[in-house]
Design a protein around this nucleic acid. Structure first.
Length: 243
DNA sequence: CCGGTTGTTCAGCG
DNA sequence: GCGCTGAACAACCG
Protein backbone atom coordinates (compact mmCIF):
# COMPACT_ATOMS: atom_id res chain seq x y z
CA UNK A 1 0.00 0.00 0.00
CA UNK A 2 2.10 2.71 1.39
CA UNK A 3 4.31 5.16 -0.44
CA UNK A 4 3.35 8.82 -0.19
CA UNK A 5 1.02 8.93 -3.22
CA UNK A 6 -1.03 6.02 -1.89
CA UNK A 7 -1.57 7.91 1.35
CA UNK A 8 -2.71 10.95 -0.60
CA UNK A 9 -5.27 8.74 -2.37
CA UNK A 10 -6.44 7.53 1.03
CA UNK A 11 -6.96 11.13 2.09
CA UNK A 12 -9.10 11.81 -0.95
CA UNK A 13 -11.16 8.68 -0.36
CA UNK A 14 -12.14 9.62 3.20
CA UNK A 15 -13.26 13.18 2.61
CA UNK A 16 -16.85 12.10 3.25
CA UNK A 17 -15.88 11.83 6.94
CA UNK A 18 -14.23 15.23 7.24
CA UNK A 19 -16.22 17.33 9.72
CA UNK A 20 -18.02 14.23 11.01
CA UNK A 21 -18.37 13.24 14.64
CA UNK A 22 -17.11 9.82 15.70
CA UNK A 23 -20.13 7.96 17.05
CA UNK A 24 -18.30 4.75 17.94
CA UNK A 25 -14.66 3.81 18.24
CA UNK A 26 -13.05 0.40 18.69
CA UNK A 27 -9.93 -1.55 17.81
CA UNK A 28 -6.88 -3.29 19.25
CA UNK A 29 -4.59 -0.27 19.32
CA UNK A 30 -2.95 0.00 22.75
CA UNK A 31 -2.98 3.75 23.19
CA UNK A 32 -6.38 4.70 24.51
CA UNK A 33 -8.37 5.28 21.36
CA UNK A 34 -11.58 5.66 23.42
CA UNK A 35 -10.44 9.24 23.54
CA UNK A 36 -11.79 9.65 20.00
CA UNK A 37 -15.37 8.89 21.02
CA UNK A 38 -17.61 11.88 20.37
CA UNK A 39 -14.80 13.90 18.79
CA UNK A 40 -15.27 15.77 15.55
CA UNK A 41 -12.74 15.36 12.76
CA UNK A 42 -11.45 18.80 11.80
CA UNK A 43 -9.43 17.64 8.79
CA UNK A 44 -7.45 14.84 7.21
CA UNK A 45 -3.86 15.61 6.32
CA UNK A 46 -0.80 13.74 5.12
CA UNK A 47 2.92 14.12 5.59
CA UNK A 48 4.82 11.72 3.38
CA UNK A 49 3.60 8.27 4.37
CA UNK A 50 1.86 9.56 7.50
CA UNK A 51 -1.93 9.73 7.46
CA UNK A 52 -3.15 12.34 9.92
CA UNK A 53 -6.60 12.64 11.47
CA UNK A 54 -6.84 16.09 13.01
CA UNK A 55 -8.94 16.97 16.04
CA UNK A 56 -9.22 20.21 17.92
CA UNK A 57 -6.34 19.69 20.33
CA UNK A 58 -4.54 16.59 19.04
CA UNK A 59 -3.93 14.45 15.98
CA UNK A 60 -4.01 10.72 15.28
CA UNK A 61 -1.01 9.62 13.23
CA UNK A 62 -1.44 6.44 11.23
CA UNK A 63 1.43 4.69 9.49
CA UNK A 64 0.55 1.68 7.37
CA UNK A 65 4.16 0.43 7.33
CA UNK A 66 4.60 -2.44 4.86
CA UNK A 67 1.46 -4.41 5.52
CA UNK A 68 -1.11 -1.98 6.77
CA UNK A 69 -4.48 -1.69 5.07
CA UNK A 70 -7.80 0.09 5.40
CA UNK A 71 -11.42 -0.28 4.40
CA UNK A 72 -14.03 2.40 3.84
CA UNK A 73 -17.58 1.29 4.63
CA UNK A 74 -16.32 -2.29 4.49
CA UNK A 75 -14.64 -4.70 6.89
CA UNK A 76 -11.96 -7.35 6.69
CA UNK A 77 -12.21 -10.62 8.58
CA UNK A 78 -9.43 -9.66 11.00
CA UNK A 79 -9.84 -7.27 13.92
CA UNK A 80 -9.17 -3.65 13.07
CA UNK A 81 -6.50 -1.72 14.91
CA UNK A 82 -8.77 1.29 14.75
CA UNK A 83 -12.40 1.43 13.69
CA UNK A 84 -14.41 4.65 13.62
CA UNK A 85 -18.11 4.76 12.95
CA UNK A 86 -19.89 7.86 11.70
CA UNK A 87 -23.48 8.70 10.86
CA UNK A 88 -22.65 8.26 7.19
CA UNK A 89 -20.35 5.23 7.31
CA UNK A 90 -17.22 3.75 8.85
CA UNK A 91 -13.48 3.80 8.46
CA UNK A 92 -11.32 0.81 9.46
CA UNK A 93 -7.53 0.47 9.73
CA UNK A 94 -5.64 -2.82 10.05
CA UNK A 95 -2.13 -3.75 11.18
CA UNK A 96 -0.77 -0.25 11.27
CA UNK A 97 1.08 1.97 13.70
CA UNK A 98 -1.14 4.45 15.52
CA UNK A 99 0.12 7.31 17.66
CA UNK A 100 -1.16 10.56 19.10
CA UNK A 101 0.45 13.89 18.36
CA UNK A 102 -0.37 16.57 20.92
CA UNK A 103 -0.58 20.23 20.05
CA UNK A 104 -0.11 22.05 16.75
CA UNK A 105 0.93 19.91 13.78
CA UNK A 106 3.14 22.65 12.43
CA UNK A 107 5.44 22.03 15.37
CA UNK A 108 5.65 18.32 14.60
CA UNK A 109 6.19 18.44 10.85
CA UNK A 110 8.42 20.10 8.32
CA UNK A 111 5.88 20.38 5.50
CA UNK A 112 8.59 21.50 3.11
CA UNK A 113 10.03 17.97 3.24
CA UNK A 114 6.90 16.36 1.80
CA UNK A 115 7.51 15.78 -1.91
CA UNK A 116 3.77 15.84 -2.62
CA UNK A 117 2.98 18.96 -0.63
CA UNK A 118 2.36 22.44 -1.98
CA UNK A 119 4.89 23.46 0.65
CA UNK A 120 7.62 21.19 -0.83
CA UNK A 121 10.85 23.17 -0.98
CA UNK A 122 13.55 21.78 -3.29
CA UNK A 123 16.09 24.29 -2.00
CA UNK A 124 15.62 23.03 1.52
CA UNK A 125 16.06 19.46 0.30
CA UNK A 126 19.27 20.49 -1.39
CA UNK A 127 20.52 22.08 1.80
CA UNK A 128 19.81 18.90 3.76
CA UNK A 129 21.58 16.81 1.12
CA UNK A 130 24.65 19.01 1.32
CA UNK A 131 24.87 18.07 4.98
CA UNK A 132 25.23 14.33 4.22
CA UNK A 133 27.82 14.11 1.41
CA UNK A 134 28.88 10.56 2.29
CA UNK A 135 25.38 9.13 2.16
CA UNK A 136 24.57 6.84 -0.76
CA UNK A 137 21.87 8.21 -3.04
CA UNK A 138 19.83 4.99 -2.60
CA UNK A 139 19.66 5.79 1.12
CA UNK A 140 19.18 9.53 0.66
CA UNK A 141 16.01 9.10 -1.39
CA UNK A 142 14.53 6.93 1.36
CA UNK A 143 15.34 9.43 4.10
CA UNK A 144 11.96 10.76 5.15
CA UNK A 145 13.34 13.95 6.74
CA UNK A 146 14.57 14.91 3.26
CA UNK A 147 12.13 13.18 0.89
CA UNK A 148 9.02 12.43 2.93
CA UNK A 149 6.77 10.11 0.97
CA UNK A 150 9.43 8.50 -1.21
CA UNK A 151 9.54 4.72 -0.87
CA UNK A 152 11.46 1.92 -2.49
CA UNK A 153 9.59 1.93 -5.80
CA UNK A 154 9.96 5.67 -6.27
CA UNK A 155 13.63 5.36 -5.32
CA UNK A 156 14.33 2.79 -8.03
CA UNK A 157 12.39 4.66 -10.70
CA UNK A 158 13.90 8.06 -9.92
CA UNK A 159 17.47 6.75 -10.06
CA UNK A 160 16.76 5.02 -13.33
CA UNK A 161 15.11 8.09 -14.84
CA UNK A 162 18.02 10.35 -13.98
CA UNK A 163 20.61 7.71 -14.92
CA UNK A 164 22.35 7.74 -11.57
CA UNK A 165 23.85 4.58 -10.05
CA UNK A 166 22.38 3.80 -6.61
CA UNK A 167 25.82 3.48 -5.00
CA UNK A 168 26.77 7.05 -5.94
CA UNK A 169 27.36 9.30 -2.97
CA UNK A 170 25.35 12.47 -2.52
CA UNK A 171 28.45 14.66 -2.31
CA UNK A 172 29.91 13.30 -5.55
CA UNK A 173 26.84 14.07 -7.66
CA UNK A 174 27.37 16.87 -10.16
CA UNK A 175 25.02 19.79 -9.45
CA UNK A 176 22.97 18.90 -12.48
CA UNK A 177 22.28 15.35 -11.27
CA UNK A 178 21.68 16.54 -7.71
CA UNK A 179 19.05 19.00 -8.93
CA UNK A 180 17.56 16.32 -11.16
CA UNK A 181 17.25 13.87 -8.27
CA UNK A 182 15.38 16.45 -6.20
CA UNK A 183 13.15 17.38 -9.10
CA UNK A 184 12.34 13.82 -10.11
CA UNK A 185 11.59 12.73 -6.55
CA UNK A 186 8.57 15.02 -6.75
CA UNK A 187 7.83 14.52 -10.46
CA UNK A 188 7.79 10.76 -10.28
CA UNK A 189 5.69 10.86 -7.12
CA UNK A 190 2.97 12.69 -9.04
CA UNK A 191 3.26 10.26 -11.95
CA UNK A 192 2.95 7.45 -9.39
CA UNK A 193 -0.16 9.15 -8.02
CA UNK A 194 -1.88 9.44 -11.39
CA UNK A 195 -0.93 5.94 -12.51
CA UNK A 196 -2.01 4.42 -9.21
CA UNK A 197 -5.40 6.15 -9.45
CA UNK A 198 -5.81 4.73 -12.96
CA UNK A 199 -4.66 1.24 -11.79
CA UNK A 200 -1.81 1.32 -14.29
CA UNK A 201 1.12 1.89 -11.95
CA UNK A 202 2.91 -1.43 -12.42
CA UNK A 203 2.85 -1.31 -16.19
CA UNK A 204 4.74 1.97 -16.05
CA UNK A 205 7.63 0.61 -14.01
CA UNK A 206 10.85 0.88 -15.98
CA UNK A 207 13.23 -0.51 -13.37
CA UNK A 208 11.42 -1.66 -10.26
CA UNK A 209 10.82 -5.42 -10.40
CA UNK A 210 12.05 -5.49 -13.98
CA UNK A 211 14.55 -7.95 -15.40
CA UNK A 212 15.95 -6.05 -18.37
CA UNK A 213 16.97 -2.44 -18.86
CA UNK A 214 14.65 -0.91 -21.47
CA UNK A 215 17.40 1.44 -22.65
CA UNK A 216 20.24 -1.01 -23.09
CA UNK A 217 18.42 -4.31 -23.25
CA UNK A 218 20.81 -5.87 -20.71
CA UNK A 219 19.81 -7.60 -17.46
CA UNK A 220 19.21 -5.30 -14.49
CA UNK A 221 21.38 -5.82 -11.47
CA UNK A 222 19.43 -6.38 -8.30
CA UNK A 223 20.85 -6.14 -4.81
CA UNK A 224 19.96 -5.00 -1.31
CA UNK A 225 21.96 -1.82 -1.17
CA UNK A 226 22.79 0.90 1.31
CA UNK A 227 22.33 1.06 5.05
CA UNK A 228 18.65 0.49 4.54
CA UNK A 229 19.29 -2.77 2.66
CA UNK A 230 16.37 -2.21 0.36
CA UNK A 231 15.96 -4.04 -2.90
CA UNK A 232 17.51 -2.03 -5.68
CA UNK A 233 17.27 -2.49 -9.46
CA UNK A 234 19.83 -0.77 -11.62
CA UNK A 235 21.61 -0.88 -14.96
CA UNK A 236 25.40 -0.80 -14.90
CA UNK A 237 25.49 0.55 -18.44
CA UNK A 238 23.24 3.60 -18.37
CA UNK A 239 23.28 4.54 -14.68
CA UNK A 240 26.46 6.45 -13.94
CA UNK A 241 28.39 5.87 -10.74
CA UNK A 242 29.64 9.05 -9.04
CA UNK A 243 31.94 8.56 -6.05
C1' DC B 1 3.17 -23.48 -0.21
C1' DC B 2 6.92 -20.78 0.54
C1' DG B 3 9.72 -16.71 -0.26
C1' DG B 4 9.78 -12.08 -0.62
C1' DT B 5 8.40 -7.38 0.50
C1' DT B 6 5.62 -0.30 -1.48
C1' DG B 7 8.59 0.42 6.24
C1' DT B 8 9.75 1.68 10.76
C1' DT B 9 11.20 1.01 15.56
C1' DC B 10 14.10 -0.35 19.05
C1' DA B 11 17.31 -3.40 21.62
C1' DG B 12 21.93 -4.20 21.85
C1' DC B 13 26.44 -3.24 20.83
C1' DG B 14 31.01 -0.75 20.54
C1' DG C 1 25.46 8.38 26.41
C1' DC C 2 26.00 8.52 21.71
C1' DG C 3 25.41 6.54 16.96
C1' DC C 4 24.98 2.71 14.29
C1' DT C 5 23.14 -1.84 12.83
C1' DG C 6 20.40 -5.76 12.43
C1' DA C 7 16.41 -8.14 14.09
C1' DA C 8 11.65 -8.11 14.73
C1' DC C 9 7.21 -7.33 13.22
C1' DA C 10 3.28 -7.98 9.84
C1' DA C 11 -0.14 -9.91 5.90
C1' DC C 12 -0.65 -10.48 1.22
C1' DC C 13 0.92 -11.73 -3.54
C1' DG C 14 2.81 -14.68 -7.02
Amino acid sequence: MPEGPSILILKEQVQQFSGQKIMEVSGNAKIGIERLHGQKIIAFKTWGKHFLICFKTFTVKIHLLMFGSYRINERKDTRPRLSMKFKNGELNFYTCSIQFIEGPLDEAYDWAADVLSDAWDPKKAKKKLKEVPDMLVCDALLTQEIFAGVGNIIKNEVLFRIRVHPLSTVGALPVKQLNLMIKEARNYSFDFLEWKKAFVLKQHWLAHNKGVCPRDNVPFHRAHLGKKHRRTFFCELCQVLYT
